[in-house]
Write a protein that binds this DNA or RNA. Structure first.
Length: 472
RNA sequence: GCUCCCUUCGUCUAGCGGUUAGGACGCUGGCCUCUCACGCCGGUAACAGGGGUUCGAAUCCCCUAGGGAGCGCCA
C-alpha cells in the first residue's frame, strides 16, 4: 500500500473561490484520513495572468480555513528546467514533435471543421515534417491514434475516451514555456501524487494526461473529479452571484468552521448528519460518497450553520473575532462593558459577526435614531408614567445593585405599582435603551447599558415623547 | 456542431428491488415569552418524461428532454 499523497494546485489568477476551497478541502480530508500528505502547488505557468497578490490571497484563504498543507507551496515557474528535460526526452523518443503551423492555418482549420460539424482538433500536419529547431515552433505531443483510454474515476466510475477524439496537444509554447497538460503530469509524477482530486472541468484533460504519463513510462495516479458548484441560477458560480472569494466570507462575518462545514456537505453527506467538526470530517469523509452531480450554493444554509457555530463557539474567541467588526463601526470595545459578556448574551441573536457587531453597538454608544415603528408603538404618552417611575427607581439603585436580579425586581415592581403588564413597562424602556424593539431580556439589557447611560437614554426618550406630543 | 458528464422537495441531501420516499436549510402554523432570537411541537414540498426488466422499481436497462463541461501557444 503506497502512501496517500494529494495536492491542491490552483493557478494564481484570482482569489481562492468557494469551488476551489471545496476541492482543497476534499483533498485535505482525504490525505488526513489516510495518514497521507497534502501538497500545495501553484500553477503559475501562465506568466501573463499569474500574480503574487493572487498567490497571497489564496494562501490567506487556506490559512483562514485551516487547510494546512504538509509540503509546498511549489511553484511551477521554478521547475522550467525539469519540464524542458521531460520535453526533450519525449522529443528524442519521437513521442513529441515540432510544429510550425501558423495561427492563421490553425484558425482556418478550425473554421473548416466547425463548418463541417466535426469536433475541431489539430490535424497532425507537422507530425512527419521534421520542422527545424531553428524556426519558431511549438512542440506537440504525439497522441495515440487508436485505442481507448479508460479512466477509473473514484467518483465518476469507469470512463472511456477514444483516442481518435484527442488531438496532438501543445506541450511547449513558441516562447519555450511549458503548458498546463505537461506540467501537471510531470509534477504529479515527481511529487508522488497518489490521488488527483480536482474539479470536473478537468475531466476531459484526464485521458490526455494519462497518455503523456504512459509515454513517459509511468502509471497514472488515481483520479477523482468533483462536480463544480453552481450559483442560484444554475450557472457556474461566479462573481455575479455575490461573494465567491473565501476571504470575502470572513469579511462578511462568517466563521471558518461554518464555511468548511457548509462546503463539506455540498456534494457529500454522511447519512443525515449536518454538523461536522474538522475531526469528524477527517474520520468520516469518503470519496465514494461524493456526488456526481453539481450542487447549488445556498447562502441561507451557510448562514444557518454560521449561526449555529456562533452559538457553540467559545465567547472569548468570538469576542476576539468580533473586535475588528466593531472597529468598522467606530467602536472601541475596550471602553465599556466586557466584550465577552456582551458576546455571551448577544451571540445567540446574530447570524454573522457583522450582525453581532451591529446589535452590540448599543452597549458602547448611544444609538443614532429610534427605529421608526418601534418608537411609534412604544414611545407614546402612555409610556411617560412608567418611564418616569423607572427612572426614579433606577436612579435610586446603588451601583453595586446594578445587576440582573435586582434590575428585574425594579422593573417588575414598577409594573406592579402602576398596575400595568410587564410588556407595557419593559418595551418602552427597551426602545429607550437600544432604540429598537428587540434586545436581550430587559434586566440584562439594563446591566449592559449601565446606570449612567440608562438614565441619559430614559431622559432622551421622555423628551422624544414630549416632542412628539407637541407636534400632534 | 462533436466528445464526455449530470438529473429525488425551491436548495443541500438519505435511499443502494418491497419505506406512509427520511433529514436539513428556507417558508409557514403553534408553544415558550418583557421584545428579538434560541429552543420545542406541527405543516408545506420531490423521485424530469416515456418505454422496458421484475411478483414488485426512486433504485437495473434503453430512449427522449433538460442542464453542465471540454473542444486555446488558459489552467
Amino acid at each position: 500500500m503506497t502512501t496517500v499523497r494529494t495536492r491542491f494546485a490552483p493557478s494564481p489568477t484570482g482569489y481562492l473561490h468557494v469551488g476551489g476551497a471545496r476541492t482543497a478541502l476534499f483533498s485535505y480530508l482525504f490525505a488526513r484520513k489516510h495518514g497521507g500528505r497534502f501538497v500545495l502547488r501553484i500553477e503559475d505557468t501562465d506568466l501573463t495572468r499569474s500574480t503574487v497578490e493572487s498567490v497571497n490571497t489564496i494562501l490567506e484563504g487556506m490559512t483562514w480555513l485551516g487547510l494546512e498543507y504538509d509540503e509546498g507551496p511549489f511553484y511551477q515557474t521554478q521547475r522550467f528546467e525539469r519540464y524542458a528535460q521531460v520535453i526533450e526526452t519525449l522529443l528524442q523518443k519521437g513521442l513529441a514533435y515540432r510544429c510550425d503551423c501558423s495561427k492563421e492555418r490553425l484558425e482556418a482549420l478550425r473554421q473548416r471543421q466547425m463548418a463541417a460539424k466535426i469536433k475541431p482538433r489539430y490535424d497532425g500536419h507537422c507530425r512527419n515534417r521534421q520542422v527545424s529547431p531553428d524556426q519558431p515552433h511549438v512542440i506537440r505531443f504525439r497522441n495515440p491514434d487508436q485505442g481507448v483510454v479508460v479512466v477509473e474515476d473514484l467518483i465518476r466510475g469507469r470512463l472511456r475516451f477514444h483516442n481518435e477524439e484527442l488531438d496532438d496537444l501543445i506541450l511547449r509554447r513558441s516562447d519555450g514555456s511549458p503548458t498546463y497538460n505537461l506540467t501537471v503530469v510531470v509534477d504529479d509524477w515527481d511529487m508522488g501524487i497518489s490521488h488527483v482530486i480536482r474539479g470536473d472541468d478537468h475531466l476531459n484533460n484526464t485521458p490526455r494526461q494519462i497518455n503523456i504519463l504512459r509515454a513517459l513510462g509511468q502509471e497514472p495516479p488515481r483520479y477523482a473529479h468533483v462536480p463544480m458548484i453552481l450559483g442560484e441560477d444554475g450557472a457556474r458560480l461566479s462573481k455575479r452571484h455575490g461573494a465567491v472569494s473565501v476571504v470575502a466570507y470572513r469579511e462578511q462575518g462568517y466563521l471558518p468552521e461554518a464555511l468548511l462545514n457548509y462546503l463539506v456537505r455540498l456534494g457529500w453527506s454522511h447519512g443525515d448528519q449536518e454538523i461536522f467538526s474538522l475531526d469528524e470530517m477527517i474520520e468520516l469523509f469518503d470519496l465514494e460518497q461524493v456526488h456526481r452531480s453539481p450542487a447549488t450554493f445556498d447562502r441561507e444554509k451557510l448562514t444557518w450553520l454560521n449561526q449555529h457555530y456562533l452559538q457553540q463557539a467559545d465567547p472569548k474567541r468570538i469576542a476576539h473575532l468580533l473586535s475588528p467588526h466593531l472597529g468598522k463601526l467606530g467602536i472601541d470595545p475596550s471602553q465599556g462593558a466586557d466584550l465577552v459578556q456582551v458576546v455571551k448574551v448577544l451571540a445567540p441573536r446574530a447570524k454573522t459577526l457583522v450582525e453581532l457587531a451591529e446589535i452590540s453597538a448599543f452597549v458602547y454608544r448611544d444609538f443614532e435614531d429610534y427605529d421608526e415603528t418601534a418608537a411609534k408603538k412604544h414611545l407614546r404618552p402612555v409610556a411617560r408614567e412608567p418611564l418616569e417611575a423607572l427612572r426614579a427607581a433606577l436612579e435610586d439603585l446603588a451601583l453595586d445593585d446594578w445587576e440582573p436580579y435586582t434590575l428585574e425586581q425594579v422593573v417588575k415592581g414598577v409594573a406592579e405599582r402602576l398596575q400595568r403588564k410587564l410588556g407595557k413597562v419593559a418595551q418602552p424602556l427597551r426602545v429607550a435603551l437600544v432604540g429598537r424593539a428587540a434586545s436581550p431580556s430587559i434586566d440584562v439589557t439594563l446591566q449592559l447599558v449601565g446606570k449612567e447611560a440608562t438614565l441619559r437614554r430614559i431622559d432622551r426618550a421622555l423628551a422624544y415623547i414630549q416632542h412628539r406630543a407637541a407636534q400632534t
